[in-house]
Structure formats: C-alpha cells, structure tokens
Computed example of a mutant assay.
Amino acid sequence: MKFNQFVIIGLGRFGSSIGRELIQLGYEVLGVDRDEEKVHEMSHVLTHTIIADATEEEVLRSVGARNFDCGVVAIGDDIQASILATILLKELGVKKVVAKAVSDLHGRVLQRIGVDRIIYPERDMGVRLAHQLVSPNLLDYIELSKQYTIAELQVPSCLEGKSLDDVNPRGRFGCSIVAINKPKGIIIAPVAKDVLTTNDVMVVIGTNDQIEQFQQSIGQ
C-alpha cells in the first residue's frame, strides 16, 4: 500500500524528525501536539499543524484522522497519553498505526491494542551503535527479525580490486551482498564480476551469525 497522508501525534524530536523527512519525500503531514511552541516551530514545515489534545476523541474526529493513511503516535514522555491516542486512532479506523514505545512494558501494551508497528528508538539506536563500536567496518545495522539482519559494511583494503566471485560470501558464509553503494551510484543485485573498492559500501543480508562470520573474515 502506498501512503500519501500521515498524521503525527507528538511533535517532539522523534515526531518532528519523522515529519520533516516525510515532507522531504513529498507526502502530506498533519502534526498534532498540545505544546503551542512545538506546533509553532513545525507550522512552516508540515502541511498542517494543530494545537490539540489527541487523547480526546472529538479532536481526532474534527481533524479527520480516519481519512489519513497512516497515524504515527510519537508521544514519549506520557505513556498514558500515548496509549489513549493509539486506541482512538485504531477505533477511528486509521489504516495503519505506528507507535513509539519507551519501554518493553509500553510496547507490550501497544501490541495488545493492535498497533501495526512498534518503534523503540532509544533501544534500537543503542543496539545499532553497540554493533558499530565493536565492528570497525560496520556502518549501519538493521535487525529484520531475531535471526536475520541487513548490514552496511565498508569495503576494507583487503578486498580492494576483488570481484564478488572472489569474495564469495554466500558460498563461504551463507550471507549475500544484495547491493554495492559506489561513489558514482548504487548497484542493485550485483553480479559475480562486479569489483569492490575501498570507497564502496556493501549491503549484506543474512543471519546474525553469517554476517558476524563475514565481518570477522574481512576484519582480519
């Protein structure tokens, strides 16, 4: 499903960041927050903004929340408000509801409510940073599930000038290089003859163990 209109509840750092990026990508965004200062700050950035309490059903009805393709509950400092706003969006029939969770308990409650996607910004960023700190070639790390991961790895000097056939990560470790980000552009689904240079970034997908073994092999 292609989303065109988003409503973001909570215009703190997390909600504002999402809103700015969605606008840059060409989508329409309504921002809702009780804080007048936050709303004013984003009023010239988002498509529409409103100072309101999103835990009140009539407020969400009046702004036409049910007509939005996706609702993002980005409230972080008030768990009760986060849960109430989420319930209302679900009851109003918003097609997809995404919510920020600040703890595992908060996340479990959101899951019970039926949230389509739960985001743990602080926890996820901590996990990604930890992996980056211990793996010098790792630029980014996204956990797809408890087993599978997508990782961005800087090509080390030991792989300079080598083709994917020479490196053979799938045959040796079971993981696959699904893209190579080169200075001149990205290669999607690279072939065996494509050559790596130290300016490249490899996008690798596989199990956590497979990628770890590959990282260790190129880090030596």
Score class of each variant (00 low, 15 high):
D104Y: 12
I50V: 15
T47Y: 03
K100H: 07
I87M: 15
I119V: 15
Y141T: 02
E56D: 13
I142C: 05
A101R: 09
D140N: 14
I79K: 06
T47F: 06
G107H: 10
V98H: 11
G93K: 01
A52Q: 06
R34I: 15
A74G: 11
V94C: 04
I83A: 09
I119G: 12
I142Y: 14
L139C: 05
E56Q: 15
D69W: 04
K100Y: 11
G107C: 05
D77A: 14
L25W: 00
G31R: 01
I79N: 04
A52L: 06
E122Q: 13
E143Y: 03
L144P: 03
S82H: 03
T55G: 04
A101C: 03
A81Y: 13
V94A: 02
V72L: 08
R108T: 06
D104Q: 15
V59C: 02
G93W: 02
F68V: 12
R117M: 11
R66A: 15
V63P: 00
R117E: 12
I113N: 05
A99N: 09
Q132T: 12
V98E: 10
G107P: 01
E58F: 08
V115W: 11
E21Y: 11
N67A: 14
G126M: 04
R117I: 02
L89W: 03
L88P: 02
G19K: 07
V102H: 13
S17Q: 08
V63Y: 01
T86F: 00
Y120V: 00
T47D: 06
R66N: 12
D35E: 13
Q132N: 12
D104F: 13
L133Y: 05
S103Q: 04
G64C: 06
K38N: 14
E122H: 10
G76T: 01
N137V: 13
K100S: 07
A52S: 11
D35H: 00
S103A: 05
E28D: 14
V29F: 01
E21W: 06
Q80D: 14
K95W: 10
C70F: 13
I118T: 09
K146Y: 09
V72A: 02
E57K: 15
V127A: 08
R128G: 06
V102R: 13
L129D: 00
S103K: 08
L89K: 09
V97P: 12
A99I: 02
D69S: 04
D124Q: 10
D33M: 03
L46M: 07
L30W: 03
A65P: 11
M125W: 06
H44W: 07
R34E: 14
L46N: 07
E28R: 13
S135L: 12
L84H: 01
N137M: 12
G126K: 04
I51A: 12
V94I: 11
V32S: 09
S145E: 07
V98L: 15
L89Q: 10
L60P: 11
K90W: 06
E122D: 14
R66M: 13
R61D: 02
L138A: 00
I83W: 05
I51T: 15
R108Y: 07
G64Q: 03
M125T: 10
V45R: 06
G26K: 06
A130L: 02
